[in-house]
């Protein structure tokens, strides 16, 4: 098997790692948008997290990665196969730039149609990513109609196909991770808003960190399996932390005082819509669960506010200040010292 760079061996990039863990704890938070330069370990981190998570149980032979005891919408041939539950790694789909709609949504199985005249649906990448991760590099360069489609499916958790005489629907719940560089074109605000969290990643500025990155990568390339073994304990700790937080999250209490703070923060920043407040609350709860706490505190809120709100602020053409300092300022003003 091909070794995957361990999650806990990633140097720095704490905000990105935290955002990914928060999203892994509560899937309803929605996707994560990662802004940043090329070669800063974005896809490495996402891939590492996917390989870290415990395997899922699927029905053998199911082409839609359905749960072993699935109910709800299921396409006609989903139950084909033995139907016995089997273990499968968490899916990770890397959507290439320039992917066609056919590839993403799925299309008529051309081979079968031509050879046997059978009308059968060939599931696309959306079906493949069900219950896993869908990673889109340079999401800002993706065709608009594809971005719309992906975000819609990500929000509804279901892929509805109406094309080429096919009419079916299948579940497609996945964590959408987008990455992009704002210098190469911006994403429309309505689309940005659909992402739950956003983080800015930068190349580490301290030379010592950069040397450490190169050193670890070099060791990984020379001896992948040995390197992975070195970090297996740390990775296992991360898995345990996420699993525990998942169990604990629904019971974490959000006091009214914290909810009010969240509303006032969103109001002060002029973040559009209620989605910001909702995400803020969910992310704070997930963070509290990750930290082993039973109650959300203002400190949790302040910690997740930048990643939950950064991309929802209306860009002021004449204001040079970036979003992150604006959020920090608002927190300093509103939060009790």
């Amino acid at each position: 098997m091909k070794a995957i760079f361990p999650f806990s061996a990633i140097v720095g990039q704490d905000e990105m790692k935290q955002a990914l863990l928060i999203a892994a704890v509560d899937g309803r938070i929605g996707g994560v948008m990662v802004f940043g330069d090329r070669g800063t370990g974005k896809s490495t981190a996402v891939r590492a997290l996917a390989s870290l998570l415990p395997p899922i149980e699927v029905r053998a032979g199911c082409r839609y990665t359905c749960e072993a005891k699935a109910d709800g919408p299921c396409p006609f041939d989903c139950t084909v196969g033995t139907g016995k539950p089997v273990q499968k790694a968490v899916p990770f789909v890397d959507l290439p730039l320039g992917a066609t709609e056919d590839r993403v949504v799925g299309a008529l199985d051309l081979e079968r149609a031509l050879a046997t005249g059978e009308k059968r649906f060939e599931p696309g990448l959306l079906a493949k990513a069900h219950r896993g991760f869908l990673y889109i590099d340079e999401v800002n360069l993706l065709e608009d109609h594809l971005v719309d489609l992906l975000l819609d499916v990500a929000a509804s958790g279901e892929n509805v196909v109406e094309r080429e005489g096919l009419s079916l629907r299948h579940p497609a719940r996945f964590l959408l991770i987008g990455s992009g560089n704002p210098e190469e074109g911006e994403l429309r605000p309505q689309l940005l808003d659909r992402f739950g969290l956003s983080v800015d990643v930068k190349t580490p500025e301290v030379l010592a960190d950069r040397i450490e990155v190169v050193r670890r990568r070099d060791r990984f390339d020379r001896d992948p399996h040995g390197f992975v073994a070195d970090y297996s304990e740390a990775d296992a700790a991360v898995v345990a932390k996420v699993a525990k937080a998942r169990k604990r999250a629904p019971d974490v209490v959000v006091p009214d005082q914290v909810l009010e703070l969240a509303s006032r923060l969103c109001q002060a920043l002029g973040a559009d819509g209620l989605r910001g407040e909702l995400t803020l609350m969910r992310a704070a709860r997930a963070l509290a669960a990750l930290n082993g706490k039973k109650t959300v505190t203002p400190a949790h809120l302040a910690a997740v506010a930048p990643m939950a709100l950064r991309h929802r602020l209306r860009r002021n053409v004449l204001d040079e200040t970036g979003s992150t300092p604006r959020i920090a300022r608002a927190i300093a003003e509103i939060f009790p010292a």
Binding site: D37, R38, G39, T40, G41, T203, P204, R210, V213, V214, R217, D218, D221
Partner: peptide, 11 residues
Amino acid sequence: GGIRAALQAVK
């Protein structure tokens, strides 16, 4: 070019 270039130089 960031970390990728440094790594490639090492290789």
